[in-house]
Design a protein around this nucleic acid. Structure first.
Length: 572
DNA sequence: GCCGTTTTCGGCCCGACTGTTTTCAGTCG
């Protein structure tokens, strides 16, 4: 599947078109729409191209189809190459800073000769930005803050992006290399929402052959080092660092444990070993020279007097103590999830129809799917008017009635307006199966005001779920200023369900916040915020966050059956 | 560049907010 690669090229064309002031402002929109549709395809773009079906993709017409074909056959697109030659490559990075768009990026380039983030930082630090018309000291500070935020996540990648790559590499080695066992470790295995690199572990009798298979994978862009048991490569257009360690079978468990981390968790385990007169390292647990454990992770933990600790808990935030007391949670799993309640259709900013979304949910084996399209104030999403919502709801109910297996719930993702009021009147909200409320505007309110705003929304009796509470976008936008303790207190009091939004750049709430919610007795829901059928797969990421938050099935409302969850919302 | 029960041309992504503005351009969703 080269879908992501094609989508990336189209996104880049869109970015560069925006920088060209002489361009039609609708062209970038068209390219982005096509790129999103291609990302969401279940089929391989190559197959569609071969079958002459590219123009069946929504948003792909003759022009874009031709460019896709050129990309697939020649590995380049003439228009993209031409656009690239017009601007320095760093300009797109500048354009992606918060509060900076194409116009500002272009001016910074033309008027200050700034061509990348580093030069921009220098210009801001030297106070040169404020010389520009419309810029003051405040704008300089904002830009510096934006660069800082970007750097904090520099070289880090979204779990939602890396996890499929990890799966592919593991699968590739399993099928093409002489490995006995192979798995990924590191922060990916702990389901951290952003990860710096990828660790692959394997056992094999012929380590050199595994290393060779690893370094010659099609995905590899550069081989950094390649030894007998340890090698490092960079993969994909983002050049993500992937390390491979080939272990002896008797060290499989200890190696996997060691490379899963995190560091603090490992240090604590080694301390425990030490106190027992043992030594723990990546090769096993040793008493003197003698290896006493290491073949499996269970083996390692058991030898230290502990039950197995799930990877998502290994952050040294109390899991080792809980394990010692036999008080580890029985974590929720992906298989426990019976439905997804935060999804969009093409009536607002989703790509697929209601019927397509339902079919995809059915294919996942869900009992139910909730449709929650946007409310009117989110104009660009085509937020539904009251009248359109009523028609939509009727359509959803009619589908559900005809469907014996998968049931649909009619909901909304209703905007929380600046004053904490909701974007639909109560008379509309009361007729829905459930109501999701969320913040999409006025992000920069001070904490007190913002907290009161969200509290007011939660206090509306019709609001069932608070979606993506912090509204952060990883590496792009800071969390809004919220008193999270207060939010959780109010949620517990009002019975508001709080969402773990599994969309890769949101992952909101994150694990620690989810844990906080649980400690307040708040119920949570794991939702994908799907805008295409393919996005339903994000559930796995959200469940990862739930597990990082120590959540059990009883904490997560979409582990309930259809009847149970209907009753649950109706009784609130 | 795409698209079509208002259409093969002319709309589409509009309105609010922000910061710096003196009347608004740029950004965001």
């Amino acid at each position: 599947m080269r879908n992501e690669e094609v989508a990336a090229a189209l996104y880049e064309i869109a970015d560069l078109l925006e920088l060209s002031s002489d361009e039609d402002r609708f062209r970038p929109i068209s390219y982005r729409r096509a790129a999103r549709a291609i990302e969401g395809l279940a089929e391989a773009i190559e197959d569609l191209a071969n079958q002459g079906r590219l123009e069946q993709i929504p948003g792909v017409g003759r022009g874009i189809a031709a460019k896709i074909k050129q990309h697939l056959s020649e590995g380049k697109i003439d228009e993209l190459a031409a656009l690239r030659s017009r601007f320095p490559p760093g300009l797109v990075d500048i354009m992606r800073l918060p509060d900076v768009g194409p116009k500002t990026a272009r001016r910074l380039y033309l008027e200050l000769k700034v061509t990348n983030l580093e030069e921009l930082r220098k210009a801001a630090e030297e106070g040169r930005l404020r010389r520009l018309k419309g810029f003051k000291e405040r704008s300089e500070q904002n830009i510096l803050k934006g660069i800082q935020l970007r750097e904090a996540t520099k070289g880090r990648f979204l779990l939602g992006y890396v996890l499929p790559i990890a799966d592919r590499i593991v699968e590739h080695l399993r099928t093409t290399a002489p490995v006995d066992k192979v798995a990924y470790g590191g922060s990916v295995r702990r389901m951290k929402e952003s990860v710096g690199d990828l660790d692959i572990l394997a056992t094999a009798t012929d380590p050199a052959a595994v290393t060779k298979a690893f370094t010659s994978m099609p995905l590899v862009r550069e081989v950094i080092m390649s030894g007998d048991t340890k090698s490092t490569v960079l993969v994909g257009p983002e050049r993500i660092q992937v390390d491979l360690r080939v272990l002896e079978p008797r060290s499989w468990g200890s190696g996997l444990q060691y490379f899963t981390g995190n560091k603090d968790h490992n240090i604590k385990l080694r301390t425990i070993a030490q106190k027992m007169g043992l030594k723990l390292n990546e090769y096993g647990i040793f008493r003197g020279e003698e290896q006493v454990a290491g073949a499996t992770e269970e083996d390692v933990y058991r030898t230290l007097g502990l039950p197995y600790i799930e990877p998502e808990l290994r952050e040294d935030t109390g899991e080792i103590e809980a394990a010692a007391q036999g008080a580890l949670p029985n974590l929720v799993t992906l298989a426990d999830i019976k439905g997804d309640l935060h999804t969009h259709t093409n009536l607002t900013d989703g790509v697929n129809t209601l019927e397509q979304m339902a079919a995809a949910a059915r294919a996942k084996g869900y009992e139910y799917l909730g449709i929650s399209d946007h409310s009117p104030s989110l104009r660009v999403t085509g937020g539904l008017s009251e009248e359109h919502l009523r028609i939509h709801v009727a359509h959803i109910r009619e589908y559900s009635k005809r469907s014996p297996d998968l049931k649909l719930l009619a909901g909304t993702e209703c905007d929380i307006l600046g004053d904490g009021s909701l974007d639909y009147p109560d008379s509309v909200l009361k007729d829905l199966d459930y109501v999701i409320a969320s913040v999409h505007s006025h992000f920069k309110m001070p904490e007190k005001e913002m907290t009161e705003r969200v509290v007011r929304a939660m206090s509306n009796d019709h609001v069932d779920i608070l979606a993506h509470p912090t509204t952060r976008k990883i590496g792009q936008r800071e969390s809004i200023a919220l008193d999270m303790e207060r939010i959780m207190e109010v949620a517990a009091d009002a019975g508001t369900v709080v969402e773990i939004n599994a969309y890769p750049d949101r992952m909101d709430l994150n694990g620690p916040h989810a844990k906080l919610a649980k400690e307040h007795g708040v119920k949570l829901i794991v939702d994908t915020d799907s805008h295409t059928t393919a996005h339903l797969d994000f559930m796995r990421l959200g469940v990862g966050s739930a597990r990082r938050g120590w959540l059990e099935t009883s904490d997560v409302v979409n582990t309930m059956s259809y009847e149970e969850i209907l009753t649950f919302f109706a009784s609130r």
